[in-house]
Simulated assay, not measured.
Amino acid sequence: MPIISIVVPCYNEEEALPLFYQEATRVAGEMSGIDFEFVFIDDGSRDNTLSVLRRLAAADRRVRFVSFSRNFGKEAGMLAGLEAATGDYVALMDADLQDPPALLPELYRAVTEEGYDCAATRRTTRAGEPPIRSFFARLFYRLIHKISDADIVDGARDYRLMRRAVVDAILSMREYNRFSKGIFGWVGFRTKWIPFVNVERVAGETKWSFWKLFRYSLEGIVAFSTVPLALASVLGVLLCLIAFVFILVVLVKTLAFGDPVGGWPSMICVILFLGGVQLLCIGILGQYLSKTYLETKRRPIYLVRETEEGIK
Rank of each mutant, 00 (worst) to 15 (best):
30 E>I: 07
31 M>I: 15
31 M>Q: 12
31 M>P: 13
32 S>E: 13
34 I>G: 04
36 F>H: 11
37 E>L: 09
40 F>D: 00
40 F>S: 01
40 F>V: 00
41 I>N: 00
41 I>Q: 00
42 D>L: 01
42 D>G: 03
43 D>E: 01
44 G>C: 01
44 G>H: 00
44 G>W: 00
44 G>N: 00
45 S>N: 12
46 R>S: 08
46 R>L: 06
47 D>Y: 06
50 L>K: 03
50 L>Y: 01
51 S>Y: 10
53 L>N: 03
54 R>S: 03
55 R>F: 11
55 R>H: 13
56 L>R: 09
56 L>Y: 09
57 A>Q: 01
57 A>Y: 01
57 A>D: 00
58 A>H: 09
58 A>E: 15
60 D>R: 04
60 D>S: 08
60 D>T: 04
61 R>T: 05
62 R>L: 05
62 R>I: 04
64 R>I: 02
65 F>G: 00
65 F>M: 00
66 V>S: 01
66 V>G: 03
67 S>R: 06
68 F>H: 02
69 S>I: 07
73 G>T: 06
73 G>Y: 05
74 K>Y: 06
74 K>L: 10
75 E>N: 13
76 A>K: 01
78 M>I: 14
79 L>M: 10
79 L>R: 14
81 G>N: 06
81 G>M: 04
84 A>F: 01
85 A>H: 09
85 A>Q: 09
86 T>F: 07
86 T>S: 15
87 G>V: 10
89 Y>K: 07
89 Y>N: 08
91 A>S: 15
92 L>T: 01
92 L>C: 03
95 A>L: 08
95 A>W: 03
96 D>F: 04
100 P>W: 05
101 P>G: 10
102 A>E: 15
104 L>Q: 14
104 L>V: 12
106 E>Q: 15
106 E>I: 14
107 L>V: 08
107 L>Q: 15
109 R>Q: 11
111 V>W: 00
111 V>M: 02
113 E>D: 10
114 E>C: 08
115 G>D: 08
118 C>V: 12
120 A>W: 05
120 A>E: 08
121 T>P: 03
121 T>A: 07
122 R>Q: 06
123 R>F: 00
123 R>Y: 01
123 R>A: 00
124 T>W: 04
124 T>N: 04
125 T>D: 12
127 A>K: 14
128 G>C: 10
128 G>Q: 07
128 G>E: 04
129 E>F: 14
131 P>N: 05
131 P>H: 09
132 I>R: 15
132 I>K: 15
133 R>P: 04
133 R>V: 11
134 S>Y: 03
135 F>I: 06
137 A>C: 11
139 L>A: 15
139 L>S: 11
139 L>P: 03
139 L>Q: 09
140 F>L: 10
140 F>A: 10
141 Y>D: 15
143 L>S: 14
143 L>K: 12
144 I>E: 12
145 H>I: 11
146 K>I: 13
146 K>G: 13
150 A>R: 08
152 I>Y: 05
154 D>L: 13
154 D>A: 14
156 A>P: 04
157 R>C: 09
158 D>K: 11
160 R>Y: 06
160 R>D: 07
161 L>G: 05
162 M>V: 01
164 R>T: 02
165 A>T: 12
166 V>M: 10
168 D>R: 13
169 A>G: 03
170 I>P: 08
171 L>F: 04
172 S>F: 12
172 S>I: 07
172 S>W: 10
173 M>I: 09
173 M>Q: 07
